[in-house]
Design a protein around this nucleic acid. Structure first.
Length: 581
RNA sequence: CGGGGCGUGGCGCAGUUUGGUAGCGCGUCUGCUUUGGGAGCAGAAGGUCAGCGGUUCAAAUCCGCUCGCCCCGACCA
């Protein structure tokens, strides 16, 4: 590629809307342009990187038996009604009508489409297991997109779907897929990506993991054990929160005028927040009952965990709802509550804590010395607590740390949620009809591209791993009005291209500073420089983007040398990918 | 959806308080001089000042409405 013809300008200054470094480089380097909030066009350098990431993904999906297919972006209401998601999913699903008034939608994920396709094609146990995948556009009308390509509304995603006869077979394949993911991220130059336990969200199913790139720009909070390697998303992480046992003292009603919040009450009564019980009302569980949830005062409610228990989205209840079950807002107590009208869910932190302060269901009054076992006997406790930095690891005696991460991929065990609801059956060996068990596996291509940019960079621009660099080698010609330089640079670029290398040739008669700054923004790993100075020595100068090392070679060694660099670079990345697993 | 900020040539910004018919830097084009980390000089092109409506002799500037973008929160397979 000749730089003089490359479409997409580079900016010297940082665009105002960029917050993340990767976002700034995306715009400054001419990789992508925003069309609307969360909707981007890719320019040649951006598309070239994306295409290389996609190629790696294809190779690794094919390696575990995947077959590439392509499903439509536009699907029908009827199809999504089969699974029940047309009603379940909110406004993030873009819906529209065709000219005939038929309800259509833009797919945000393709479980319905893949089951629609495969239920007619896979009808025998002899065809199982099977995995199909696609690399296709998705649209999710996110309430708020941000961060360049990290969180967008329209994006390219690799999504894969597997079908199995047995849970054991899915379990085994799930691990194979996790291993393929580890290889994909390593081959994209990010072997530091980690697999963590995660929530299953709207996908349904029980087992799910996310692949996280740990970095400060990440939107997710990850809980990590310093002792045993336990890793989980904060949404699902479990922790050991130290109990606070105490010999039960008699229940005592105390006057607490106007003291509603945990902090106010704790301060007023002179007790630490961990000696209080926090009550939060939600509206409502899957049967429509209001929910009263309790955690210890120093612990945050985990609404993801709660959602699983009540089988519904927890939404804060209003005061009228709270009063309707006989509780007093700000002074609510689990005692004296009609359990038929209100579901009471108690976190395990309350079980181990004695003599807590809790509401008295009466304005301006609290109780001292609430003890769960004594005052609410027979109450079952569950885990609805949010893990905190320093809490104990659930698996060892280490302690937990909180870190930030970008989710670059995820894997789910879906079970039979979609095959049952959409009536996908096959015949078993014994002639009986059965529903296949599904897994699904996603990777966001643009997000992965941005993530690499976020982590592999210096202050001048991205430092692309050779495996996904937009070009493999760059030729810079300095002083192009010098005929000798022009001829030598043209020959060098031509020879490299003829040898099959991906060459970016800066054939503009620009000053060195301009050329080098642009080269840094494009992040090509290896640079060859032709100039009058070097030519006088009969040499070509080289520079590595990553280490900054420089040196000289003879012109007739250039092609061979560049080939060796690239081969060595790729081999080093592959060696990391081949490790472990 | 709540709170906040901002919309002025491709990019970064000033001008808005106090209304007078649009400016700076970068970039682009032409010429000359330059050539190892974003050159110098001379000339040039490019803007319905987000849009609509209002006030006024006169609106980027004042008033109203709408739209868009960014940030925080809610939300997020």
């Amino acid at each position: 590629m000749r730089m003089s013809q490359l479409v997409g300008r580079r900016y010297k200054e940082r665009p105002a809307e960029a917050t993340l470094e990767s976002h700034a480089f995306l715009l400054r380097g001419g990789y992508a342009r925003q069309v609307a909030n969360g909707i981007y066009s890719l320019l040649p350098p951006g598309l070239r990187v994306a295409a290389k990431i996609e190629r790696i993904i294809r190779e690794e999906m094919d390696r575990i038996g995947g077959q590439e297919i392509l499903m439509p972006v536009v699907l029908t209401r009827e199809l999504w009604e089969e699974s029940g998601r047309y009603a379940d999913v909110g406004p993030e699903l873009a819906r529209f009508k065709d000219r005939g008034g038929r309800d259509l939608l833009l797919a945000m994920t393709h479980e319905e489409a893949v089951v629609h396709l495969c239920r007619d094609e896979i009808t025998s146990y002899k065809q199982l297991p099977a995995m199909v995948y696609q690399i296709q556009t998705k649209f999710r009308d996110e309430p708020r997109s941000r961060g360049g390509l990290i969180r967008v509304r329209e994006f390219t995603m690799k999504d894969a779907y597997s079908f199995h006869q047995t849970q054991a077979d899915l379990d085994a394949y799930y691990e194979e897929c996790a291993e393929a993911y580890r290889r994909i991220f390593a081959r994209c130059g990010m072997p530091e990506t980690v697999k963590i336990q995660s929530d299953t969200g709207m996908m349904g199913g029980k087992v799910a993991h996310e692949f996280m790139l740990l970095c400060d720009a990440g939107e997710d909070t990850i809980v990590a054990c310093d002792g045993c390697g336990y890793l989980a998303n904060l949404e699902v992480a479990e922790g050991r929160i130290a109990p606070l046992p105490e010999e039960p003292a008699p229940l005592e009603k105390v006057h607490t005028p106007g003291k509603r919040t945990i902090d106010e009450v704790a301060e007023f009564l002179g007790v630490p927040p961990e000696r209080t019980a926090k009550v939060v009302f939600y509206d409502s569980d899957s049967e429509g009952r209001p929910v009263m949830a309790l955690v210890r005062g120093d612990v945050e409610m985990n609404e993801t965990k709660l959602a699983k228990i009540i089988q519904a989205m927890p939404e804060m209840a209003d005061d009228a709802t709270i009063r309707s079950v006989g509780a007093e807002p700000g002074f609510a107590s689990p005692m004296e509550i009609d359990k038929d009208k209100c579901r009471i869910i108690v976190d395990h932190t309350l079980a181990g804590a004695g003599n807590l302060v809790c509401g008295a269901n009466e304005p301006d009054y609290h109780y001292r010395n609430f003890n769960l076992e004594r005052d609410l006997p027979g109450t079952e406790t569950v885990d609805i607590a949010t893990v905190r930095e320093g809490d104990g690891c659930p698996n060892c005696d280490g302690s937990l740390e909180l870190k930030r991460g970008i989710e670059v991929g995820n894997i789910f065990q879906l079970g039979r949620k979609y095959t049952e609801s959409m009536a996908m059956t096959y015949l078993e060996e014994n002639g009986e009809e059965a529903y296949p068990i599904m897994g699904c596996y996603g990777i966001g291509v643009g997000r992965l591209l941005s993530s690499v940019m976020e982590v592999k960079r210096d202050k001048f621009g991205p430092i692309w791993p050779i495996s996904i660099a937009p070009w493999q080698v760059q030729v810079n010609a300095i002083g192009l009005d010098n005929e000798e330089v022009r001829a030598a640079a043209e020959k060098l670029a031509g020879d490299l291209s003829a040898a099959g290398l991906e060459v970016l040739f800066d054939d503009r008669d620009e000053r060195p500073g301009v050329q080098f700054a642009d080269a840094d923004l494009l992040g090509v790993p290896y640079r060859l420089i032709v100039s009058p100075r070097n030519l006088k020595q009969g040499q070509i100068e080289w520079k590595r983007r990553d280490t900054g090392e420089t040196g000289f070679i003879e012109p007739d060694e250039a092609v061979e040398t560049a080939q060796r660099w690239i081969a060595d670079g790729l081999a080093a990345i592959d060696a990391v990918a081949d490790q472990a697993g």
